[in-house]
Design a protein around this nucleic acid. Sequence first.
DNA 1: CCAATAGATGAATTATAAATGCATCTTCAA
DNA 2: TTGAAGATGCATTTATAATTCATCTATTGG
Lengths: 165, 165
Amino acid sequence: MLRTVFTLPTVMQLTQFTDLGLRVLMYLSYQEREQPVTIAEIAERFAISRNHLMKVVHAMAQQGWLATTRGKGGGLALAMPADQYRLGQVIRQLEQITVLIDCAQPPCALRGQCRLKGVLDEALAAFFTVLDRYTLADVVAQPTGQAIAILHRLGSAGLPPAGNS
Amino acid sequence: MLRTVFTLPTVMQLTQFTDLGLRVLMYLSYQEREQPVTIAEIAERFAISRNHLMKVVHAMAQQGWLATTRGKGGGLALAMPADQYRLGQVIRQLEQITVLIDCAQPPCALRGQCRLKGVLDEALAAFFTVLDRYTLADVVAQPTGQAIAILHRLGSAGLPPAGNS
DNA sequence: CCAATAGATGAATTATAAATGCATCTTCAA
DNA sequence: TTGAAGATGCATTTATAATTCATCTATTGG
């Protein structure tokens, strides 16, 4: 409805970085398989940049969320049971959100006496309160779990099990 | 705590565009003055780009939120009483938010069967529900209203009333 | 009527940072 | 000891918010 000549900015979205982080957790929640999951595999399944994914995995490993092992036969795995990952905490960390507006960046004349900030903080808190009511286990319940399982099996069909030498 | 070599993305913030929009509304909520408020004045008070502010004002005027008059003696004014501006609606329009993740942009393999989207939508709804509990009148209550009044008076002291010819 | 003022509009440019790509290193197991 | 996997850092590309510039339109006062 808002008709403007120029395009309005649209920033309040999760970055692809966070998006990938969530997908990695979801993909790893499927445990019924022999071969370990590798970064290359996830990148292929979701058709995303392997390098970007590497950074996401690295950040999550540093958080203690992922167990990574190098070398041949290495790969990724969840470091905890799926119901231990609270979505709010995951997103908050990956997105590095602190405030919706920064009253100090270009110093606002109303800083310190502005009720707007309080309202925005309250709204953001409500946002994360909802997210924290859910865990990774919740989002990979059916039918999502089934879709993830299919994604895994698609892989083992299309790829050689370990190496076709 | 999240220690990474590179810097994590930090996107989920309001744009300066939206930020300015809110400040304009707050500034205009002060009605006890003779001269009309101009874009140039607001830009000066908040030390921001006059041109960028122009776009914000324009977008809000098209929404019917601002009454603008051109020409000498022109300026801006709120088009409605302050308690008619719901913060959620204002921010939603200025920020153009629809979804936190776009399952289709790089088409996600789980699209259509993913519980994550539902959770994020619910959280975003909670966010705006809080914001919609507040109006412009709420955020310009004391002490904010006082700070805004001072901003206005600072101006009339520092600037000649109409032109020092 | 004219000049000054104020918003309207569009194009072009700049700045910022997310996303991507590349090169190299480290680790581990067969 | 070789190949496979993640780790790390840097450079590049891309997207877009922010800014600037130029010009146009509308309104008022002299």
